[in-house]
């Protein structure tokens, strides 16, 4: 059986091949890249029965127009950018069978910044340094290290045999509000800022500017003041690091960040919240709130447990609905367990 391709009719604003990224080469200056919102990306792969590391498409604000050359199974997650399959709205957050010759287009949306398209078998471009992710800074990976454009033909991988579509537990489908609270751990260089600077950073709304991209969110808002010079001897830059250059405007680094940076980092966004920031569009707002490292660890562990395949499967099998009733002053709790057998 031959596996089909996806033919790109229009590339959209910025559509790239991404997977979970390219760890292991940061010491050589290679950005980890990968899906900016790993949360939505992982759920898309889950839905079509792919392993987590299969490559898909990251679609930004204005979607592409894509032709599927053969029957396949797809799932679209993340921002609702108005997906339309052959003229009909395409339901998101679930696997959908697509006939060969079908066209997927996007009518546009108002909330969220990035949608993720997973296809059974994954996008099978050649891996570079262990990943199919597009590195837009290094200009390699994905399709020639660039965003998709008309005329590109994306090979699809062989779907894993017998891999069925899997439902996404509905309680895991996020909303993409226009204002989010991002929890941060202060540091590693919070001591480079005045106490007033820290107060301003934690107490002010910041607006996402149009200069934001896969490297990072550039924010506009009250300036965060440094104690002294706004540079440090360059050091490593983790995902979610909030750099503050001399102008006092915070920049939150995302997937395609540089591996080291020379601006002081006032705080680091926790892993459980970073994906929310990757879904903000220009004009959306973010507030920062500090949590302790202990709290951040607890939240990280809970966040990453979401991706454990057994736990996801258990969630799908068993859904519990609870009601609380108060009758004549007594409080009763009722629970209904729904079970789905495959």
């Amino acid at each position: 059986m031959t596996v089909g391709t996806i033919r790109v009719i229009e590339g959209g604003l910025l559509t790239t091949v991404q997977d979970l990224g390219r760890p292991g080469y940061q010491m050589l200056g290679v950005s980890p890249a990968g899906a900016a919102d790993e949360y939505a990306f992982r759920l898309a792969n889950w839905a079509v029965g792919n392993p987590p590391e299969a490559a898909g498409l990251e679609i930004t604000l204005v979607g592409p127009r894509l032709l599927f050359t053969s029957d396949t199974l797809v799932a679209l997650t993340g921002a609702d950018l108005g997906p339309v399959l052959d003229g009909q709205p395409l339901p998101m957050w679930q696997a959908v069978r697509v006939r060969g010759g079908s066209t997927l287009a996007f009518a546009g949306g108002t909330r969220g910044c990035r949608a993720y398209l997973a296809v059974a078998g994954g996008i099978d471009v050649p891996p570079v340094l262990g990943s199919r992710s597009t590195d837009l800074l290094g200009r390699f990976g994905g399709v020639d290290g660039r965003a998709l454009r008309a005329g590109d033909e994306l090979p699809l991988g062989q779907p894993p045999p017998g891999a069925p579509p899997r439902p996404i537990p509905p309680e895991l489908v996020p909303l993409y509000p226009e204002e989010v609270e991002a929890r941060v751990v202060l540091g590693p260089q919070e001591d480079h800022f005045t106490s007033e600077g820290l107060r301003v950073f934690l107490g002010s709304p910041y607006v996402v500017t149009p200069q934001s991209d896969r490297i990072g969110l550039r924010l506009e808002g009250p300036a965060v003041r440094h104690r002294g010079r706004a540079d440090i001897i360059s050091d490593g830059m983790p995902a979610g690091a909030v750099q503050v250059p001399q102008d006092g405007r915070p920049l939150v680094v995302l997937a395609n960040r540089q591996t080291v940076g020379g601006y002081p980092k006032i705080a680091t966004v926790i892993s459980a919240d970073l994906w929310r920031l990757a879904q903000l569009r220009p004009g959306n707002r973010v507030f920062f709130r500090a949590v302790t490292p202990e709290e951040a660890h607890r939240l990280a562990i809970r966040h990453w447990q979401l991706w454990d395949e057994d736990q996801l499967a258990a969630r799908v099998r068993q859904r519990t609905t609870r009601w609380q009733l108060t009758v004549a002053g007594f409080r009763y709790s009722l629970s209904l367990e729904e079970s789905t057998e495959e």
Partner: peptide, 20 residues
């Protein structure tokens, strides 16, 4: 992953596997 720079090493770790 470890990322050495001028005067420091950034150590990336999985907190559920390796507590701080």
């Amino acid at each position: 992953e470890v990322v050495p720079s001028y005067r420091s090493v950034l150590v990336y770790y999985r907190p559920w596997e390796l507590p701080l």
